[in-house]
Design a protein around this nucleic acid. Structure first.
Lengths: 113, 113
DNA sequence: CAGTCAGTTCAATAATTGTTTAACTATTGA
DNA sequence: TCAATAGTTAAACAATTATTGAACTGACTG
């Protein structure tokens, strides 16, 4: 992942609708979701969805595959991982964002219950 | 870090000049860099820098402190870490971006109750 | 085939973002 | 106090991005 590719990826995610769309696709797993399904969950019009999915696809964050008259979109996990890696390496100054978390608490994301 | 905050942060980084400015500030360490120094390294005009720094500051990614007639900007490592954490948790489906890098079984994120 | 369904593309428009030049504020130092 | 330095703010403009409604393409079904 180079800088200009990172900028494209960041730009693709830097919008409410697209970020939420991507999140839904990640949640949906490798099979992804049909465009119409996604449009319904996001409550946006088909053209709006098409526009935003094109942005995500263009950045390489999602893939699409046609199945009958449905088009399924799915998240490209590798691309996302590359982006996170890029940010960690280039914008955090190391393995984790360096100087700030000197000592003390480590924030562990809370899941379940 | 919530979604709309993440969008703001992503938007702040989703531009060549700002991403590079932030990277330079991360590299510079906690003391940061004077605005003029940054402008020279980025080879942009003072107003252009001001504009972009405002974007980064607005997103909470950089802080500024005045010292004499210089204004030093520095990266907020915690904010950056929060963003990376958000992406990892919400857009990767787990600790690392899950299903794509399988050499065997699929690890599909499940929402558990 | 004709009709419908899923989705995209197009065109027009509104809104946001980035760049530039000029003018301004604050600090320093002679 | 005057001039220079560091940086921001303002205003005008260009470019990009987002939203909408209408028209289109391709795949299924009767």
């Amino acid at each position: 992942m180079n800088r200009s590719r990172a900028v494209k990826s960041l730009a693709a995610l830097a919008q409410e609708t697209r970020l939420e769309a991507f999140r839904l696709l990640v949640q949906a797993g490798p099979d992804g979701l049909a465009a119409g399904d996604l449009a319904a969950r996001l409550d946006i019009s088909p053209p709006a969805l098409s526009f935003h999915l094109r942005g995500l696809a263009n950045a390489g964050l999602v893939r699409s595959r046609q199945d009958g008259r449905f088009i399924y979109y799915s998240a490209d996990y590798d691309a996302m991982q590359s982006l996170v890696d890029f940010l960690t390496e280039n914008c955090c100054g190391g393995a984790a964002c360096a100087p700030a978390r000197t000592t003390g608490r480590k924030v562990i994301p809370r899941r379940l219950s």
